[in-house]
């Protein structure tokens, strides 16, 4: 093996290396910018983690970004188990569970319905299909606040007011618009001849959907699941409007926890509560983020 010539040696030979000084400077500048921006972006998260691991004394004496001298998970344990939210002092755990009970069914149902809708709109023509699809798309652009009053009336009529199934219904209705659009736009990129071949082969409506279409749809399924789960999990408005007391989601509970603390503000507990509320979406993005990006690309640029 020949030694790689160092730059002075290369210059002595009069052969410019691929990284000449100008390019090198440019590269350093670009990476420098990225590092600074990443630090700026991560600073609040770092501050939250640090603060949540400190005791109140240390918070009073230290600065926002200082590393905890005596790290403790006391604040985490307290908000999880025993913090008082409104009048109940059972911590966040019940509300954390509520959010799962809302987000998981709402995600699965809205993604399932969206897939079915998208399949029908992309493959099976019927009278007025474009008008109907337009109406569903229109649903994506209706601001949440507009539907609050009529939705409250509807939930009341159905006897679901203030319950978790009621919130699931609201999120499904609202999410189906988006998931329908995602799946329809993905399925129209599937060559029409595949559907024709399946029909000639004797496959019906469901066989085409389950055997042929769904197995090649995992990128858009991932996109829809992430989109819906984070949307439902992070929702505050519907939660605060339609859920009562013990059926509230964690976003509402965190808000109540922060706003009802008496005496001194327990910053460490506030930060711990916010971290707990954000964890599931962070986990989903870290675990499935690359599928999310890939899915968006697959829908956008079809080779």
């Amino acid at each position: 093996m020949t030694a790689v010539p160092d730059s002075s040696f290369a210059m002595a030979l009069g052969r410019p290396r691929s990284l000449n000084p100008t390019k090198m400077f440019g590269r350093i500048f670009v990476y420098g910018c990225l590092v600074v921006l990443a630090a700026l972006f991560l600073a609040p998260l770092a501050s939250m983690v640090m603060t949540s691991l400190k005791s109140m004394e240390e918070i009073r004496s230290g600065t926002l970004l200082s590393v905890p001298q005596a790290p403790t998970i006391e604040a985490w344990a307290s908000v999880w188990n025993s913090a008082c939210i409104s009048v109940a002092c059972g911590g966040l755990q019940g509300y954390f569970g509520n959010s799962f009970l809302i987000a998981v069914p709402a995600t699965l149902i809205s993604v399932g319905l969206g897939a079915l809708n998208g399949y029908v709109f992309s493959t099976w023509r019927f009278r007025g299909d474009n008008v109907l699809f337009g109406l569903i798309l229109f649903g994506c652009f209706i601001p949440l606040q507009i539907v609050l009053i009529p939705m409250a009336g509807l939930l009341g009529m159905l006897g679901l007011a203030g319950t978790i199934p009621g919130l699931v219904l609201v999120h499904v209705v609202y999410g189906v618009c988006f998931t329908t659009m995602f799946f329809r736009n993905y399925f129209v990129t599937v060559p029409a001849e595949i559907f024709k071949a399946a029909r000639v082969d004797g496959a019906g409506f469901w066989a085409i959907f389950f055997r042929i279409l769904l197995p090649i749809s995992w990128p858009i399924v991932m996109v829809s699941i992430i989109w819906q789960f984070t949307g439902v999990w992070n929702d505050f408005l519907f939660g605060v409007s339609f859920a009562a007391g013990s059926s509230q989601p964690i976003t509402v509970a965190v808000n109540n926890l922060v706003n009802t603390s008496t005496g001194t503000k327990a910053y460490n507990e506030d930060m711990a509560a916010a971290m707990i509320a954000a964890l599931p979406t962070i986990v989903i993005y870290v675990a499935a983020g690359r599928y999310f990006l890939r899915g968006l690309m697959a829908g956008a640029v079809k080779g």
Binding site: E193, I194, K196, A197, A198, R199, V200, I212
Partner: peptide, 17 residues
């Protein structure tokens, strides 16, 4: 189509991916 007892070969092959 399935009741006509025909089989078809498509230009793009249309294999199930």
């Amino acid at each position: 189509p399935k009741e006509r007892d025909i089989a078809m070969v498509f230009q793009s092959y249309a294999l199930y991916p």
